[in-house]
Simulated assay, not measured.
Amino acid sequence: MATEDHDRKLNMIFLPYFVTSHLILLVDTTSLFATRGVNATIITTPSNALLFQQSIHPQITLLNLKFPSSEVGLPEDIENFGSITSPENGL
C-alpha cells in the first residue's frame, strides 16, 4: 500500500488571472512544480496561450478553452485586460 501511495503523482491545475504580468508569474510557478515531478496543467484561452506557450516547460499541459466573449457582451477578441480598448468593453 505504501508503494502505491508513493508512485502516485500530484496533479495541479493553474488558472491565471488574465493580466499579462500575472501570466508570466504563473508560467514560472507552474514550471517550478512541473520540474519537480508534479503533473501541472494551465487552463487558459487561445489568445492568452499565444503570449506564453512557446516558453512553457514540456512537462506542462496546456488546456485551451474558448472564452465566451459574445455571451457576456464583449467583442470576440477580448480575452484579457490588456485587450480592452475602451471602458465600455470591460470595466
Rank of each mutant, 00 (worst) to 15 (best):
I24L: 13
S86P: 05
T20W: 09
L63T: 09
L51C: 06
T20I: 12
F52N: 11
L91I: 06
G82M: 01
I78G: 11
A34M: 08
L26E: 09
P46Y: 01
F14M: 12
T30W: 11
S69H: 10
S69M: 10
V27W: 04
A40Y: 04
D77L: 04
L25G: 15
S55M: 06
E88I: 00
P68Y: 05
E79S: 15
L62E: 03
L51E: 07
I24S: 04
G37N: 01
S69W: 13
N11Y: 11
M1P: 10
E71A: 15
T29P: 10
G73E: 11
Q59E: 14
I84R: 03
T35L: 10
E4T: 08
L74N: 05
I84G: 02
N48H: 03
L74V: 04
H22C: 10
S70A: 11
L63R: 12
V38N: 13
D28S: 11
V19T: 03
L32N: 08
D5C: 03
S86Y: 00
V72G: 07
R8F: 04
Q54E: 15
S86W: 00
T29C: 14
T35D: 13
P75M: 04
I78R: 11
I43P: 04
A2E: 02
T85C: 00
R36C: 02
S69L: 12
T20Y: 12
G90D: 12
M1K: 09
F67W: 12
S86A: 11
S70L: 10
S47N: 12
L50Q: 14
I60E: 12
S69F: 14
G90M: 03
G73V: 06
T61G: 06
A49G: 01
S21C: 06
V19R: 06
E76R: 03
S83I: 02
Q59A: 14
G73Q: 01
P87L: 06
V27A: 07
D77Y: 08
T3R: 07
L25A: 14
A40E: 08
I84Y: 00
V19N: 03
I43F: 07
T35M: 15
T41K: 15
R36P: 10
Y17I: 04
I78S: 08
T85Y: 00
Q54D: 10
L51A: 09
I60V: 14
T29L: 15
L10N: 12
P58L: 10
K9M: 08
S83T: 12
I78T: 09
I84M: 02
R8I: 03
F14G: 15
I56F: 08
D28L: 05
D7P: 02
H57V: 02
T85M: 00
F33Y: 14
F14I: 07
M1C: 07
G73H: 02
T20S: 05
S47A: 14
F81Q: 07
L23Q: 03
L74I: 01
A2L: 11
Q54W: 08
A34N: 11
A34F: 03
E76G: 04
K66Q: 06
N48P: 13
I43K: 06
H6D: 06
I24K: 11
P58Q: 13
G37D: 00
S55A: 06
T41L: 15
K9V: 05
T3S: 10
